[in-house]
């Protein structure tokens, strides 16, 4: 099995999986019917992407594992998602800030992944980028609305941005699988996305009358499977059925 490629795909897909799961928690509880529909839709897009990636990963593994085994039967240390996406839905400001901080990265990442020499990955990227450009438009619009809305919403959005900022730098860290895939022309060199990312984020924050956080203290570890305490609970729900009723079809 091409272990590096397999790990590389999981690294990409786990971000969508964990973020999709977080958004799925909110269905039926949004601040308005329209935002409820939009957040559910984004979750739906992300899980659709996850399925494409994991089906491909299962093929590469070449044994009898399925997309669901990969999604739901790994241990907590085996999930490679960044810390940002597992952060909880503290309130709508946190949910939108988390979404925006991920979307800006995700969009730039997929634009590069489209150029991958791996045709399956470039095809998936090509399909996903249409969805993600909508996600980015949606979340950046909400950053502006909440940032430049009322005093209360501005304070809440600034707090969320400040709180989540510490998780942004990890997006640009490279794992061993990343480095190997870059060399082969399959993977994206995420270090090269960093400057444009912070430029775009700062521009939106400025338009939203928000301060760009200045903290240079960053958290990382998710990509190596060292997560925050939040992930365990999320996985407990995600995996519940597969653990309680093993080896069954649904």
């Amino acid at each position: 099995m091409k272990q590096n490629l397999y790990n590389y795909i999981l690294g990409i897909a786990d971000n969508s999986l964990i973020l999709g799961q977080r958004l799925g928690e909110l269905t039926g509880h949004g601040p308005s019917l329209e935002t409820d529909i939009a957040c559910t839709n984004i979750s739906l897009d992300l899980f659709g992407q996850v399925r494409s990636y994991f089906q491909y990963a299962a093929k590469i593994a070449g044994d009898d594992r399925t997309e669901d085994d990969i999604a739901m039967l790994r241990k907590e240390r085996e999930y490679k998602s960044v810390l940002l996406v597992e952060q909880p839905n503290t309130n709508f400001a946190y949910t939108m800030a988390r979404q925006f901080l991920f979307d800006v990265y995700h969009l730039a990442f997929l634009a590069e992944l489209q150029k991958s020499t791996d045709l399956t990955l470039s095809a998936i990227a090509n399909k996903c980028i249409k969805e993600v450009s909508y996600h980015e438009r949606f979340s950046s619009d909400w950053i502006k609305r909440l940032g430049d809305g009322t005093e209360e919403s501005k304070a809440k959005m600034q707090e969320a941005m400040d709180g989540l900022w510490t998780y942004t730098d990890e997006l640009f860290h490279q794992t061993e699988a990343d480095k190997a895939m870059v060399v082969e022309g399959i993977g994206v060199d995420v270090t090269k996305l960093k400057d444009a990312y912070y430029t775009r984020v700062s521009a939106v924050l400025e338009e939203s009358t928000l301060e760009t956080p200045e903290s240079k203290w960053f958290q990382k570890g998710g990509k190596e499977g060292i997560h925050t305490e939040h992930l365990g609970y999320l996985l407990a729900e995600l995996q519940y059925m597969q653990r309680a009723y093993p080896n069954m079809e649904w």
């Binding site: 601040p31 309130n91 609305r145 809305g149 209360e152 919403s153």
Partner: peptide
């Protein structure tokens, strides 16, 4: 009720 501040912000914006 929890969404009120969000709707208010959207309106103000």
């Amino acid at each position: 009720e929890e969404g009120e501040w969000v709707r208010d912000a959207a309106m103000a914006y």
